[in-house]
């Protein structure tokens, strides 16, 4: 591709030489074509989402919006790359580019072939995934696992890209599930990996407030948005998440909300502002206890009790 580009530039220059003047010094601005942007979209398709329980057709609205959004991303620049994942209760899968051979498409209605390909592939793979789901036991969505897969995919693309091309990657999560405490460690791991890999995490939540994912956005400099109405999802996506992170600084976007980084105590699992931290094992407690219940370290009792014991000694 680079070669062909060079050729076209040469031709361009020849033309110019013939017509007007020689401008050899002026290098063509290739920086814009060298920078590509990889967007990985993770759609939560878990049927237990409140959203889908209320109205199953919401799923198609969401997916249609995401496809339109993904096509807009591809339209922004010819070099832009795209991947779409479906995150389910037991598995996460890539729906675009799918595991099988790409669907053959021919131009319909003058639509750009790739757009149609995205649409068809996503629809096909998604219905296959949903049809394969046969258990009736509802579990939560494995979002952390899906992010990990996305990070792996990004790392692979990053490795196999040709030299001299800069790849900006980001992950967009579109979900209507709630927070899950059981995936906490997995979440933290993927967040810090993403931060380390310079991958931006964007979260678009459709239903509930996701405090954990909000932390992930905060540390990777991504955006967090709770969509007030799902019917206008596409507009929110295009408005907030379509611009790339460097451009976002220059736009007037919803300001970041204060992220709640409070810790939960180990004893009652309640968020606390001030608590006691065991100096040995770093367990957090909301009340003082003389013996740490995690590592069984014995602490001295502070304050008035110590004074009393001293007095006793003095009397003796």
């Amino acid at each position: 591709m680079v070669l062909s580009m060079q050729k076209s530039f040469e031709r361009f220059y020849l033309k110019k030489m013939n017509n007007i003047e020689l401008r050899t010094e002026n290098e063509p601005d290739v920086s814009s074509t060298d920078e590509t942007s990889l967007l990985v979209i993770i759609i939560d398709t878990n049927p237990t989402q409140k959203l889908l329980r209320d109205k199953a057709s919401q799923l198609t609205t969401v997916v249609d919006s995401v496809i339109a959004f993904a096509n807009s991303h591809l339209m922004q620049k010819a070099q832009n790359k795209l991947a779409i994942m479906a995150c389910h209760s037991k598995t996460s899968q890539f729906v675009y580019p799918g595991p099988r051979k790409p669907v053959d498409v021919r131009q319909v209605d003058g639509q750009y072939e790739i757009f149609l390909q995205v649409e068809k592939t996503v629809k096909q793979n998604l219905s296959l995934l949903l049809a394969s789901e046969n258990s009736t036991i509802a579990t939560e969505s494995l979002l952390a696992g899906a992010i990990a897969m996305a990070l792996c995919y990004i790392a692979r693309i990053q490795r196999t890209k040709s030299a001299g091309i800069k790849l900006n990657s980001r992950i967009l999560i579109v979900s209507g599930s709630g927070d899950s405490a059981s995936q906490y460690m997995n979440y933290m791991n993927v967040f810090f990996t993403a931060q380390k890999q310079n991958v931006v995490l964007d979260v678009c939540t459709l239903d509930q407030h996701l405090s954990l994912l909000q932390q992930g956005c905060d540390i990777t400099n991504g955006l967090y948005l709770k969509v007030p109405q799902v019917s206008a999802l596409l507009q929110f996506l295009l408005w907030v998440f379509l611009p790339e992170p460097p451009i976002r600084e220059k736009l007037v976007l919803p300001p970041p909300v204060k992220v709640d980084y409070r810790a939960a105590c180990f004893c009652h699992r309640e968020l606390i502002d001030i608590g006691y931290v065991c100096s040995v094992c770093l367990s957090i407690f909301c009340k003082f206890s003389p013996i740490c219940t995690t590592c069984h370290t014995v602490f001295k009792i502070p304050g008035p009790l110590a004074v009393k014991s001293k007095k006793k000694k003095m009397k003796l």
């Binding site: 933290m188 939960a264 968020l271 367990s283 219940t293 995690t294 069984h296």
Partner: peptide, 18 residues
């Protein structure tokens, strides 16, 4: 050596027990 019990409490995260 640290002898920790109830290690799973570390893994819950700042989440009220819902």
């Amino acid at each position: 050596h640290l002898n920790l019990s109830k290690v799973e409490r570390y893994l819950h995260g700042p989440m009220p027990d819902t």
